[in-house]
Design a binder for these strands. Structure first.
Length: 422
RNA sequence: GGAGGAGUGGCUGAGUGGUUGAAAGCGACCGCCUUGAAAGCGGUUAGGUGCUGGAAGGUGCCUCAGGGGUUCGAAUCCUCUCUCCUCCGCCA
């Protein structure tokens, strides 16, 4: 969330940001609401100061065993006024909170302004695979190799769920282990394994709520949500905490399953592994000092790229335009891996800097060593990487004539040295 | 799921209606002492937010798990929620 003071002092910038994201929000009403809040609050504080003073006086009179009745009678009136004002303020606060939680983060100045068509590729890596036959899709390959059973997953759960089998299941597990090992051993992350269910406060802390409730799986009886990404539980590890400057930066990596209802996306990419309701992902999350967050973002993107390079998957890195940026992000780089069978660039990672937006919502601070002052941390996260689509790219790019698939070298130690799935 | 107990500052822990935003101890930090350190001695040591100040600071309000209530006045009384502990039940 944005600082109300910042909004007040930079109303034009915030309006521009909302417009750039293609949203419509009434900022003027919010600012007026804030004005009336501050007015009511200062009046209330004056009254409370009166009350506190009178209470001390009553206590002093009692000590001297003097009559306190007149004092109490006059205090009752003040107390009534305080009650009324408190009720009023409570209503204003609730409304203001609601409005504030609906305001998205302000895009970084380097983010291109525009809708999805303004996405810009900033660099690319690797050669597109060449075939002396017509490459097929991962759907055909997995059917042929009997490594993914789409049909039975529908029976067990419903459409767009997946049942991995045999080498498919092993490949999934190998990828998870490979990525976790890479990030912990080479990139300096600490592995965590968080809950897959989180409460409403956590969901609000990272910015999924209140806006995206319909995209989440929710357990009604407990008001818990299945996580759409490890970002939610991992970022909330430090909710309502004050970290030491020396503790920063903190790098966490986590494997979790991710659950997304994908409401409203029916008809889009609904075949195969590209858009599913449950997928595995290894996530990287950073808590850093504000002055370092853009360097840290650069490193985070490189850490994600390292995964794709070691897997030998050609990819490109794109910067998302304002209209495509997620609610809480200041800036976001997508990694898109090429998949030969479907001839598509698949988004396998989003690396974002949220600056202090999530830290403010989730109340994550740190104390500076020199000034002893508190400051919000900056939070960042990126997929490192999302599995289902990476499996698509591996199967389709490493396929051979006849439908066998070569296993990328980096994964072979995790698959007992196996070289080919056939 | 049932029964009981408990939630106070970085930690331990006092506090059952009126200078208690909170004793005491520990820890941490600063200073004195010391060649250096320890010990000893002295001091500082929650967060939020408003006003004021260049800053240091000063000052108002709020916060003793969270919400609601009683009262002129609540850490203290009532109530709901949450969390933790103990015992029982169920269970991977």
């Amino acid at each position: 969330m944005l600082d109300i003071k910042f909004i007040r002092e930079n109303a034009d910038l915030v309006k521009k940001s909302i417009k750039g994201r293609g949203l419509k929000l009434d900022l003027d009403t919010l600012i007026k609401l804030d004005d009336s809040r501050r007015k009511a609050l200062s009046e209330l504080e004056d009254l409370r100061a009166q009350k506190n003073k009178a209470n001390d006086e009553i206590a002093a009179l009692l000590k001297k065993k003097l009559d306190v009745k007149p004092k109490i009678a006059s205090m009752k009136k003040t107390a009534d006024r305080i009650d009324r004002l408190e009720d009023e303020l409570k209503k204003i606060d609730a409304e203001l909170d609601k409005s504030l939680l609906a305001i998205p983060n302000i895009p970084h100045s380097s983010v291109p302004v525009g809708d999805a068509s303004c996405k810009k590729t900033v660099r690319s890596w690797g050669e597109l695979p060449k075939f002396d036959f017509k490459p097929v899709t991962h759907i055909e390959l997995s059917r042929h190799l009997d490594i993914i059973d789409f049909g039975r997953a529908v029976k067990i759960t419903g459409s767009n769920f997946v049942l991995y089998k045999g080498w498919g299941a092993k490949l999934e597990r190998a990828l998870i282990n490979f990525m976790l090992d890479l990030h912990t051993k080479k990139h300096g992350y600490t592995e965590v394994f968080p809950p897959f269910l989180v409460n409403r406060v956590s969901m609000t802390g990272t910015g999924q709520l209140p806006k995206l409730e319909e995209d989440m799986y929710r357990l009604k009886d407990d008001d818990l949500f299945l996580i759409p990404t490890a970002e939610v539980p991992v970022t909330n590890i430090f909710r309502d905490e004050i970290l030491n400057e020396d503790d920063l930066p903190i790098y966490y990596t986590a494997y979790t399953a991710c659950f997304r209802r994908e409401a409203g996306s029916y008809g889009k990419d609904t075949k195969g592994l590209i858009r599913v309701h449950q997928f595995d992902k290894v996530e990287m999350v950073k808590f850093v000092k504000p002055e370092n967050s853009y360097d840290e973002l650069e490193k985070l993107v490189r850490d994600a790229e390292d995964v794709l390079q070691l897997l030998g998957l050609p990819y490109r890195v794109a910067i998302l335009p304002t209209g495509d940026l997620s609610f809480a992000a200041s800036i976001c780089f997508d990694l898109e891996a090429y998949a030969a069978g479907t001839d598509q660039w698949l988004e396998v990672s989003s690396c974002s800097n949220f600056e202090s937006f999530q830290a403010r919502r989730a109340n994550i601070k740190f104390r500076r060593k020199d000034t002893k002052k508190l400051d919000f941390v900056h939070t960042l996260n990126g997929s490192g990487v999302a599995l289902a689509r990476t499996v698509v790219a591996i199967l389709e790019n490493y396929q051979q004539k006849g439908g066998s698939v070569v296993i990328p070298e980096a994964l072979r130690p995790y698959l007992g040295g196996q070289e080919v799935i056939k």
